[in-house]
C-alpha cells in the first residue's frame, strides 16, 4: 500500500543511510540510537533489526510499542537539501533470533553496498569471534501512524503532516 506522501519524502526513506530510532524505556525515558532503516513501499512499513547484544530496543518495544524514526542526516544519501522527516508509529519486535540471511538478502546486500568497510567483521576468525553477536538479530517492524516533514530540514517552521495512516 502506497503511503500518501510526496516523492521527496519517499526518497528520504529510500536513500538515507541512517535514522534516529526512539523507543520508550521502562521508566518512560525516550531512548534514541542511530539505526539502518528499510522502507517497504508495498506495505508502507519500516523494517529494522537489532542485535541480541543490544536488545534494549526490543525489550522497550515489547513493553511500549510507541516509537519514532527521525530522518535528519542526509550524509551519503546523494540527496540535495532533502526534507527532514519524522515518523511516529507502533512497532513489534518478536523474540525470534535471526541468524540466516534468508528473507533479508536484499537488505544485507544494500548494507554491504552502502558500507563496504563492514566486510571487515567477517574477514578472519578473530573478527568473526569478536563480532558474531552482531549477526544474531531481532527483527523490528514499524507501522506508521503519523508522518511529519519539513522542507529543506527547517524544523522551526510548522511541519506538513499525514495523520492516522492505516497501513500494514
Amino acid at each position: 500500500m502506497a503511503l500518501p506522501i510526496p516523492a521527496e519524502v519517499e526518497a528520504v526513506f529510500r536513500e538515507f543511510r541512517t535514522c534516529e530510532f526512539s523507543t520508550l524505556a521502562a521508566d518512560g525515558t525516550p531512548i534514541t540510537w542511530p539505526m539502518l532503516p528499510f522502507f517497504r513501499p508495498s506495505t508502507g512499513q519500516f523494517m529494522t533489526t537489532t542485535s541480541i547484544g543490544l536488545p534494549d530496543k526490543a525489550f522497550n518495544i515489547r513493553r511500549h510499542p510507541r516509537v519514532s524514526l527521525l530522518f535528519s542526516d542526509p550524509t551519503g544519501s546523494g540527496l540535495s537539501e532533502p526534507p527532514a522527516v519524522l515518523v511516529q508509529g507502533d512497532a513489534v519486535a518478536p523474540d525470534e533470533i535471526k541468524t540466516s540471511i534468508g528473507g533479508f538478502e536484499d537488505e544485507i546486500m544494500l548494507v554491504y553496498r552502502r558500507q563496504p568497510a563492514g566486510a571487515m567483521y567477517t574477514s578472519n576468525p578473530a573478527t568473526r569471534w569478536f563480532s558474531d553477536w552482531y549477526f544474531m538479530r531481532l527483527e523490528i517492524t514499524v507501522t506508521p501512524r503519523r508522518i511529519l516533514w519539513w522542507e529543506h530540514g527547517d524544523v522551526f517552521s510548522p511541519p506538513k503532516v499525514v495523520e492516522a495512516i492505516h497501513v500494514g
Binding site: 541512517t18 542526516d73 551519503g76 558500507q115
Partner: peptide, 12 residues
C-alpha cells in the same frame, strides 16, 4: 534524551 552521532559518506 540527547543523541549525538555521525558517519561518513560510506557509512563508516
Amino acid at each position: 534524551s540527547l543523541l549525538c552521532h555521525g558517519h561518513n559518506q560510506l557509512l563508516w
